[in-house]
Design a protein around this nucleic acid. Structure first.
Lengths: 170, 170
DNA sequence: ATTATATGTCAGTCTTGTTGACTTTATCGG
DNA sequence: CCGATAAAGTCAACAAGACTGACATATAAT
């Protein structure tokens, strides 16, 4: 009778959380929640003439200052042509700086400028605020569960990126 | 000292789950997990020549058979021109049937055909399989937390749609 | 010296979203 | 019954953001 590692009501019924109906609710929860998740940044981005793609680039450059283009490509999972378009505008607009690598001069290391950092803060403040409110309203235990499920849903390579904090290098 | 309603370690520290760093992890978890969430259906859709927009329409018609176009519009949050494009192809391809309303003949009630249902099953089987594996690996308590956080992150109107099960009418 | 890597760019395509204008059909309120 | 409102559909134009394929340049590695 020893189950995986979690408890549940240890008696007979168990696994009621794995019914198709429960899974459907989980699927819809992801769909609707993701909309809320992006809603606030989307409004801000629109005012600045940017889109979600710019947000993603800004976010990960902020998280890992000095990251290379290739690194960013593998995190974002898009083509270099696609990334280059948004990176080009961010650099031209003075939000991102691209420095030639010292060890390997082929590489470009990406950094946010002061302006870029300001937009990053504006965006993440909004997004964090919503998440903070959600977290607070449900309590720390629910937050742990939230993170566990999300991590378990990721593709292995994305889980690697998620768990890896530092990866600059310069 | 009585806090909201959740416990945590009841001593002094509390609220460590609301730090900016924890929130950033939550944000990235959403980003990476959503990718995993859509990855399997995306592969299937590609084989059939459809996109995510078709999936969403199929999903919600399956969930609420007989739903009207307006209903679908408010759930999906897109313009009718945008929805009409995908609905048109689904109807032309014989996956969706559009029946004139009996009470109100202006309305069209949408249903999946057998073919449509088959594709729906193919898509949701794949998506459910991933979620089932995630749910199983973390246990029922984590799943409860997952759902609570997601629901708290939704916009109020989306939360309404999420909580509402039936809405056909015919 | 050749090959491989990192980056960037040009050109074209596709999906999915947007606005705005307009039509048809049907319901509803006076 | 008539005028206003509503539900659905359509046409046209446009934009963001993804894709492919081809090709260029600089640098590193063998």
């Amino acid at each position: 009778m020893a189950e995986g590692g979690h408890q549940g009501t240890p008696g007979s019924e168990g696994l009621l959380f794995l019914t198709d109906e429960q899974l459907r609710k989980g699927i819809e929860a992801m769909f609707f929640a993701y909309r809320g998740f992006t809603a606030d940044p989307d409004r801000i981005l629109e005012q600045h003439g940017y889109g979600r793609a710019h947000h993603r680039a800004i976010h990960f450059i902020h998280r890992s200052p000095g990251t290379t283009v290739n690194n960013l490509l593998s995190i974002l999972g898009v083509t270099k042509q696609s990334l280059n378009r948004v990176l080009r505008t961010l650099i031209d607009d003075g939000l991102v700086e691209s420095r030639v690598g010292k060890r390997d001069k082929r590489e470009r290391h990406l950094f946010l400028t002061e302006t870029g950092d300001a937009l990053e803060r504006e965006l993440s403040d909004a997004q964090r605020e919503r998440m903070r409110a959600a977290f607070r309203s449900v309590g720390p235990d629910a937050v742990v569960g939230f993170r566990q499920v999300l991590e378990a849903m990721m593709d292995p390579e994305m889980r690697r990126h998620f768990q890896t904090l530092k990866d600059s290098g310069q």
